[in-house]
Structure formats: C-alpha cells, structure tokens
C-alpha cells in the first residue's frame, strides 16, 4: 500500500503531508524555545545591577559560528535546488558541505564549553576569591591561571576590571568552595548551557538526518526522486529553524 500525499499536494492543505507534519513540529519547537527565551529575558531584566555577567562569552567565536550556520543554510537550500534541477551529484556536494559545517559548529561549541568548564572560582576560608582557568588539581593543591578579585561583582564584567593573570597556587586546606563555570555556577550559566545545549542537540539531530539523506537514504533518488526531493526540503526546513534560533541566541547570549 502506498503512503498518500508524499509527493502530490493534499487537496485540503495544498501541500504534501510531510510538510504539514514538519510545520506542526516546528510550531511546537517555537513554543519550547519561546519559553526559554522568555525566561532568559525576564531573569535578565530583573537581575540587580552588577549581578549579571557581561562579556563572559567569546564574541569572535560566536560570530564565527553565526557565519558557519549562515553558510550551512545556503548549502542546504542549494542541495534542495540541485535536487529540483535533477543534479544529484551537486546535491551530494552541497549536503556534504552542510554536514561538515555543522561538525565545525559543534566543535567550536565544544571548545567554548570546555573553556567554561575549566574556569574556576575558588572561595578561600579567609574570604579571598580567586578566579581563573584550572592548571592542575590534586588532593593537596589547586593551581589556577588567574587573579584574586575583591568581590564576586568584579567577576561579572571582566572588561571593567581588567587584571593581569598569573599562576596561583592554593592549598586545599584553605579552600572553602571550589566551583567551575558550569550550569550550577549562576543563573546566566544555567540559561547559557540549557539554551545553547538544547540548540546543539538540535544541530546533532539535523546532522543525523542529513547524514542519512546523504548516505543510505539517498538510494531513494533512483526509485522516487520527487519524494526524495521533498525529504530534502523538509530536512532543510528544520535546519533553517535551527539556524533562526541561533540568530536570536547569538545576540541574546553573546552581545547583551
């Protein structure tokens, strides 16, 4: 039995069924990300002065990732256009480039996460606060490449309180609290890891679909090219949604 309306538009909706399904899915995704964006904005505007981090994320890396996702949106469109023009070889090239760009995006994201997860704030028993990247740590000593700060408020905007970084050796006996810039550090890092992590999972999901359509799934081209082209289109719709989310995430997380 054939599945109806995989190629021909359904008379009542005017489009093929998979496209309707994808749009319904994207509507639910808008609500998911919309809730997170709303939470971010409300927490951001209600934060007391000097308690919300600024300049914690690398704008050059964020900009590079924006460029990479923009290019991947173009290659996704070109892959679909190549299918429409019955140029399967060109489709393979564009889809392959999309996959590579997505991989580069995730690699940069992983580097950024690593940078945050190896960045520590150490509160000493005498009240001093040391902040910097972890060099080494064992049962007796923790070594940071960082600085001592007067208060946590100074950590919120590193550009306003520039300081020279140096190697700091702290005995574990002196440590009251040792905390990295992970999701549990503060509200900003919790939101940053939740939103960018959810976005990265979507990138990963898109990559799996693209890899399938580029590899084993592309066999359909020989038997039903029109249906395959529609599959490429709805995968592209999902990818564009993920790219659009990043266009909102980038200024909200990196620039505000």
């Amino acid at each position: 039995m054939d599945i109806p309306y995989t190629v021909q538009p359904r008379p009542d909706t005017g489009v093929y069924n998979a496209k309707v399904g994808m749009w319904l899915f994207l509507a639910s995704e808008v609500m998911l990300f919309g809730g997170l964006f709303s939470a971010y904005i409300l927490l951001r505007v209600s934060a007391p002065p000097d308690t919300w981090p600024q300049g914690w994320l690398s704008v050059p890396l964020g900009t590079l990732n924006t460029l990479i996702l923009a290019l991947s949106a173009i290659t996704t469109l070109m892959a679909w256009a190549a299918c429409k023009a019955r140029m399967f070889d060109r489709y393979k090239v564009y889809q392959g480039v999309t996959l590579l760009l997505a991989l580069v995006f995730l690699s940069i994201k992983a580097y950024e996460y690593r940078d945050k997860l190896t960045h520590y704030t150490v509160t000493l028993k005498d009240g001093r606060i040391a902040d910097g990247h972890l060099v080494s740590r064992d049962d007796t000593t923790v070594v940071l490449d960082g600085q001592f700060v007067e208060s946590r408020a100074h950590l919120m905007n590193p550009k306003r309180h520039p300081a020279k970084h140096e190697e700091i050796r702290i005995s574990m006996d002196e440590v009251k609290r040792l905390q990295n810039y992970g999701p549990a550090y503060n509200t900003f890092t919790a939101l940053y890891f939740t939103m960018s992590g959810l976005h990265a999972l979507h990138i990963l999901g898109g990559m799996l679909v693209f890899a399938y359509l580029w590899g084993p799934g592309s066999r359909m081209w020989k038997t039903d090219p029109a249906r395959f082209t529609n599959r490429v289109e709805i995968a592209g719709l999902f990818w564009h949604f993920v790219d659009l989310v990043w266009i909102f995430l980038f200024p909200v997380l990196y620039l505000t």
């Binding site: 924006t66 949106a73 996704t76 469109l77 289109e233 719709l237 564009h240 266009i247 980038f250």
Partner: peptide, 16 residues
Amino acid sequence: SLKAVHLVFVTALSAL
C-alpha cells in the same frame, strides 16, 4: 516552501 523560509532567514540575518 524552503525558498520562503530561506527568505525569512536572509531577512533575519541582515537584520542581525
């Protein structure tokens, strides 16, 4: 279609 969504994407990117 993907073409229309791409147009939205290009508009959003230029606005950014």
